[in-house]
Amino acid sequence: MQRLLFLIFLAQLLVSCATRTPGTDKLVDSPVDIPAKAHILDVPFNAQEENHCGPSTLWMALKYKDKSIDLGELTKQTYTKDLEGTLKSDMLGAARRQVMLTIPVKDMEAMLREVSDQNPVMVFQNLGLEEMPKWHFSLLHGYDLGGPDVILHSGKTKDEKMDMRLFERSWILGDKWAYILLNPGEISKTASEKDHLEAAAALENLHYMSADYVSYEAILERWPKSLGAMIGLGNIYYANKNLKKSESMLEKATELHPSSPLAWHNRAIVEKDLKQSAEAKASAKKAMEFADPVLKQKFEESLSGILR
């Protein structure tokens, strides 16, 4: 057993020491179908104050999407004085407060693809050493595979050119944090159905009704069988007290995903509220049939009035 542990430990170390810039290497060695270079020229620039890279980066990204917010107000929402900086989660939270979808960008290729698609990418870098980090937010909005370089609005420098490998290393050391901001209804070409759903659901939690409606509709148009989008729309209609529409959306969900306990569950609740007790009971039974033990326990409570 101890030998097994030791082997795994060694293997983990080896993996973490492997090639340092896999994304750039791959892009340079085997070109993909993106333009050789791109630069989004109309990205607003703000020269940051000391330690204020977070609010400054977010301000530029928002301004590019026509969201004008006072930098002082944005600083209040993102900057934490005692930390002398900005938490990653606060960057996303503040963007949502401006009714924007926060979509993660997973690797170098996806980042360049987003830039060539006119979406600047907020990135988090470690400009120091692994052991002595110097954290930094900046806005990636251009690249040239010929260099290869990237172009950033960073700190006090507009359109800063940075070696792509150097950038990738700093980004990996910053734990690969990269996001674009989209308006509800917009779809990223690089992100998955799940990424879009998570972003839309995070907005839904803040109760921007009409924005969520548009987000889920767009997801459903791009991924017509999206169970998450149908459940989301069912919830929005329900919260809006439009029970009929909620029901028909969940009916569609159960038709396309007949073994989804979640869709059946919510359909049962809506049918109960519509006083269709026979239908509600049938749906609740279906929900129980497909639920795993954990869900079953939860459902026993929420569906008890219907099943009885």
Binding site: E198, A201, E204, N205, G228, I231, Y238, N266
Partner: peptide, 18 residues
Amino acid sequence: MQAHAGMISTTEALHEMN
């Protein structure tokens, strides 16, 4: 987790699906 009035919220549903 967050839920309204008996319905499974979208966040919770996504979590379950994942």
